[in-house]
Amino acid sequence: KKRTSIEVSVKGVLETHFLKCPKPAAQEISSLADSLQLEKEVVRVWFCNRRQKEKR
């Protein structure tokens, strides 16, 4: 599977969401993915990776 490069503008939206809610529910991930025209899996993994980054 190819890596998905995420646009800077999209990263901004994801970051804003992350600050409000670092662990979104599946439904939130779905609606976020739809509005950003990304796959749900890509958004889910982004949040996973972002949470791990917080720990470091």
Rank of each mutant, 00 (worst) to 15 (best):
V42D: 14
K53G: 02
S5N: 14
S9G: 14
C21L: 07
L36T: 02
K11D: 13
W46Q: 07
S5Q: 15
F47H: 05
K20V: 07
Q52F: 00
L19C: 07
A33K: 00
C21G: 03
R50M: 03
K55H: 00
D34V: 03
Q52C: 08
E28T: 07
L14P: 01
L14S: 03
V10S: 05
L32Q: 00
V13M: 14
Q52L: 12
K23E: 14
R44W: 04
S31A: 12
D34Y: 02
S31T: 13
S9L: 09
G12T: 11
W46C: 09
I29M: 06
N49H: 06
H17A: 13
K1G: 09
R44L: 04
L19R: 09
E7T: 15
V13E: 10
L19D: 07
P24E: 03
S30Q: 10
E7H: 13
Q37L: 04
S5I: 11
E41H: 10
E54C: 01
S9E: 15
Q37V: 00
K23Q: 13
A25W: 02
K55G: 07
T4S: 14
V45S: 13
L14G: 01
L19Y: 05
S35T: 12
L19T: 12
R51I: 05
S31P: 01
V43D: 04
R44K: 08
S9W: 11
E39K: 05
C48M: 12
V8T: 15
I6L: 12
K11Q: 14
G12Q: 13
S9I: 01
S30I: 10
I6Q: 11
E54R: 00
K1E: 12
V42W: 08
K2F: 05
K11C: 09
C21N: 15
C48S: 13
F47L: 01
E54M: 02
K23M: 14
E41Q: 02
N49K: 11
H17G: 04
V8W: 12
N49L: 06
S30W: 06
L32W: 04
K2M: 10
F47M: 01
E15I: 07
L32D: 02
Q27S: 14
K40S: 10
D34G: 05
E39H: 05
I29C: 08
K11Y: 11
R51T: 01
K23V: 09
I6D: 09
C48P: 02
I6E: 08
R50S: 02
L36S: 03
S35K: 14
Q52G: 08
L19Q: 12
P22D: 07
R56N: 15
